[in-house]
Amino acid sequence: MLLNFDRLGWWKLVLIGITLLTTAFLLLPILFIAALSFGSSQWLIFPPPAWTLRWYQELLEDPRWLDSAWTSFRIAIIVTVLSVLLGLVTSFGLNRGRFLFREALKALFLTPMILPVVVLAVALYAFFLQIGLNGTLTGFVISHLVLALPFSILSITNALEGFDKSIEDAAVLCGASPFEAKIRVTLPAISHGVFSAAIFSFLTSWDEVVVAIFMASPTLQTLPVKVWSTLRQDLTPVVAAASTLLILLTVLLMVLVAIVRKGLKS
């Protein structure tokens, strides 16, 4: 009985062993970086000889780190708003429309998600050099929007597919305008999809490295670009401090998602 946990015999121990090792493999590097960020060793010796907050201090006192984090944040927020709005409009069209090539259009909208990012990065870099958008906030926003939009469309169309349109029609029958019905009836019903669209869009932009490496200029760079260019030089513990803050943000977002999901269920 291979699919019954209690009747696997000693195989059960093997499976549990492999799962434990894999879980440790996935978790330990993350904990390790968090621990090292408080270690005093410049050379990242583990276990650290002493504990310190020095790397956080260096991180937070360096305007280049702060500037890049602020740039990343601004870009990610603008991308999130645009991606959700555009995703909503597009998803309504795709979900409700009965036009020719609908499936092909849907596939086209999802392509940026599956193509190698480096190809898009190089292509946009060349294009933006020609039209003067390279190294600008607009350039960053456009390129991240192209990458984030598929996730937004995917989340919202999924939510729309699970929504019974006759409820919206009922609201219209009761006197609401079609637009009002969409805003006041459909939107609340698909809010979980809109929420995932926002989270995914934010993370796509905030964590994006490859396109950003090409878009960045000496005066405008995002946090991942700053981490990247620092890592190309040396493995300074300041990066461990930055990474730990990024991991903390991930945990916060995961908790937020869990809370919202729970709230939506009840």
Binding site: L27, P29, L44, L231, L235, S243, T250
Partner: peptide
């Protein structure tokens, strides 16, 4: 196990790569 899988997936790619560079 799922929570750890998701945490690892959602953690910044550069942070994870940096961890292995150091390890």
């Amino acid at each position: 196990v799922f929570a750890i899988l998701l945490l690892s997936m959602w953690t910044n790619l550069l942070a994870r790569t940096y961890a292995w560079m150091v390890l």
